[in-house]
Nucleic acid binder design. Sequence first.
DNA 1: ATTCGTAATAATGTATACAAAATCTATGCA
DNA 2: TGCATAGATTTTGTATACATTATTACGAAT
Lengths: 209, 209
Amino acid sequence: MSSAADLAYEFIKSAVMSGEFRAGDRVKEELVAEQIGISRTPIRTAMQRLAAQGFIEILHNQGARVANWSSEDSREITELRAVLEAFGAGIAAKRINAENLDELRELSQQMEDASAKPTVANFERITELNSRFHMAIIAASGNARLADVIGNLAHPLLVQRKFSTFDSNRLARSMSDHRELIQAFERGDSDWASAIMRAHILASAEQVA
Amino acid sequence: MSSAADLAYEFIKSAVMSGEFRAGDRVKEELVAEQIGISRTPIRTAMQRLAAQGFIEILHNQGARVANWSSEDSREITELRAVLEAFGAGIAAKRINAENLDELRELSQQMEDASAKPTVANFERITELNSRFHMAIIAASGNARLADVIGNLAHPLLVQRKFSTFDSNRLARSMSDHRELIQAFERGDSDWASAIMRAHILASAEQVA
DNA sequence: ATTCGTAATAATGTATACAAAATCTATGCA
DNA sequence: TGCATAGATTTTGTATACATTATTACGAAT
């Protein structure tokens, strides 16, 4: 299951996400190959995947560079996420079942617990839980491709988000949104869910930009 | 500019689009390599790109297969296109300039001309012009990523659409939509443009499904 | 000192060779 | 006949070698 190409994929991806490979930096095949201890071939395979997902850019005969996203890019992506996730939330409100709802309540509760103590570890935990919360809603929409599209879209922002700090106001707002979303789902109110989600995403992005 | 990998990409892509490689068919590296007259290496590079765009699916140690899209897939993609293009049209209505509008009018006129004579060649020409019409609107929205997302999304439907026949009713409806869209853009009416685009896409997909 | 051109170097693109996995085939058995 | 299994074959995954293209370094000319 863990092919050399997969190793290379994870290696480069995490290096980009952690900031070890900085935006605009060139990613040399030989160098990565040495560090992992494999040949260049699977590195190239991984790079194709990473390029398709927007982590890096491959220029013909000039190798790969870590993509650097402008604030304009961030704005574009945020707008698209708002549209797509609002769409997903709207459908989910009609299709969501008891099991899905329980999961959302559970995730929401865990986030509230974690947000009580503002440590770095808790902040990362909240980020993780929040991601799962959003994915659960998209999954509940029943549109498999929606998850793919948003997944590929979100990555650039995740890199930047690593650097954002623990902001209690933003956090409180976010928690409140989650509770309200669950209410909308409980009532099966499509428009409400959609509107909250849109506002939720635009508001959370406001801090970053 | 024309690397071996690019050749392989175009070769496989057109084979899939034309139906030469049918849905579910296995795409063997050696076979394609022989036909083009290059080695397997660039074939694999191309396959990674094609897999990322959803043309083929790569299974670990089991090679690549031409993706086969169910009617459920088509429905999902159509819904997403409707959401995304409606979003794009809405923004475009506010940002569109005279040059963009001229291009749309020109494309619309050419489509109407071509639709007068129902030949296969004209049908393909209309398909091409229609694609450019939609892309022009997305471009006018100013969201570069929107084009990427829709581009990757639209492909599976294009494959199926190749098989759809020349339907004068559908065509007339489509032409009418285009004219109405241009009107909405001329007035800068965001909601109107968005609504027409949504209906336009859902209606045009109805025939396929 | 700067710029241009050329050689040296390094990196990518492609081909080939080899290893590992999956698939196919044929044989034995119930 | 049907099925299971072992071997042969095919196919993919990875490594390495070679070719081609970019990048850098260095020196000459202005």
